[in-house]
Amino acid sequence: MTASPQPAEPTPAVPLRTLRLSIVPALHPPLTGPAVALVDPATPPPRPPHRPGPRPTPEGRRSRSQDLFGPAWSVRDDLPDPRTAGRLLFTTALEALAGRRPLTQVQRLTSPGVYAALVSGRRPAWCARSTTPLLVGPVHVCEPVDGVAEVSAVARRDGRAHAVAARLEGVDGRWRCTALSIG
């Protein structure tokens, strides 16, 4: 026996309700005084940070006073490949933050300010919580000024991707990281 389809029962009409607008009083009185200035117009904006050390001469030679005191900026011709330096920096920094190598190994690759921030800062949770290996993808390089390279890459762990970027500046014939961002 086959069941024949039953005729559909008409659905009862739902009575429509009328919407009513209710005005709710504000919890706080409106501001009636002068607007609050977030920035004092009399205060000058902060100055950009000074880049320490002397710049190289156009011929790439150092003067006698530069030979005697402190580090000197290097021109691009005197520096190694920034891709190699960027990959070494990213791998070393991420493995140090993951606890797989001592953080002091990053010190020779970074400026004192970046190293201090790495030592005193929080470690990214994605970097420290897992034991799977970190994979650093291809390193992309942009050289906006002679002796400066901005490098970026994608680090992968546990199937997730994280951006890493750094600014490298040529000092005494090698790259030194002056800014590091780990996302």
Rank of each mutant, 00 (worst) to 15 (best):
R156K: 11
E59A: 13
S111Y: 05
S4I: 05
R101F: 04
A165P: 00
R76T: 04
A117N: 13
D40G: 05
S152H: 14
T178N: 09
P58H: 07
L118M: 05
Q6C: 07
S63I: 10
E169Y: 05
V151E: 01
P71A: 12
A155V: 08
R108F: 05
A116P: 12
R129L: 09
R87M: 06
T43I: 03
H28F: 12
L134I: 15
G113W: 14
P144N: 03
M1I: 08
A8T: 12
S120E: 12
T104E: 13
L16K: 15
S130N: 12
A8G: 13
G173E: 02
V114N: 04
T57D: 06
R87W: 12
L88Q: 15
A26N: 11
R157M: 01
L180W: 12
G99T: 03
A166F: 03
V119E: 14
L79M: 03
F90R: 04
L79E: 00
D78T: 00
G53S: 06
G170F: 06
R83N: 08
D77Q: 04
P34D: 10
A155T: 01
P71I: 01
T92C: 05
L21M: 09
R87E: 08
S181C: 11
P52G: 02
T18F: 15
V164L: 02
P124V: 02
P7R: 13
